[in-house]
Design a protein around this nucleic acid. Structure first.
Lengths: 117, 117
DNA sequence: CAGCATCCTCAGTGATACTG
DNA sequence: CAGTATCACTGAGGATGCTG
């Protein structure tokens, strides 16, 4: 059975919900690793499994499904035997790059700042 | 006793760790509500408690401590009786605005996109 | 190869009561 | 007022084995 993922939301500013939406989509331990892996090109399930240290098939499968539902990732099945499946970022998924850049930039500086105290 | 918060990290790109750092700081249910509340000015503990629907004192206290440890929020105690405590964003905390703007912008568009499918 | 089913653990959060 | 202490719960994530 599919696991539910639904959090309560808090509303006290008009930025609140959009920010929480965005964070929810990037939330969890594996979304960012998967997204970054896919920015380096089209990948198969087993490629991702190898490239992302310690992720289990269960989580990889689940997170890919989430990303696909949000139209960030496209899944393509080829009729070979055994089946081949390719994952790639959609064009829409690319729009996340700005956000991830902003996070990376801030995070990079923060790490430096916290180190030297 | 202080609760521990430590996650495993995944490394497969140089953006990975900085992005995860940033997300970790914004992670949890209450960081964003608190940060946004504090962008609207200096607030006391009870102000925040009233403004942020359903947050418990326990979580408010804990999240403020986290934010303070990361130098994003400043805590000032006034020697009155009973004690008065004020919380405010630090100048450094303001640097998060770019990040939150990016998240808000993307989240806003995403909400529109997903609604109309 | 590309997953799914099942069971299990524990960190994050909630509820409630108490205190300087 | 501004928290802390304690207990309880739940759901994200891990481990393992199975399948089309």
């Amino acid at each position: 059975m599919t696991e539910k993922v639904q959090h309560d939301r808090v509303t006290c500013s008009k930025m609140m919900l959009p920010v929480q939406d965005a964070l929810e989509i990037l939330s969890g331990k594996w979304k960012i690793p998967i997204i970054i892996a896919l920015t380096h090109g089209v990948k198969r399930f087993s490629d991702l499994s190898k490239e992302i240290p310690k992720i289990t098939d269960r989580m990889l499968s689940k997170e890919l499904r989430d990303l696909e539902m949000n139209q960030l990732v496209k899944r393509t099945v080829y009729d070979t035997f055994p089946v081949t499946v390719e994952y790639t970022m959609t064009e829409y998924g690319q729009t996340l790059h700005e956000v991830i850049e902003a996070l990376a930039k801030w995070g990079y500086n923060h790490r430096k700042r916290i180190m030297q105290d």
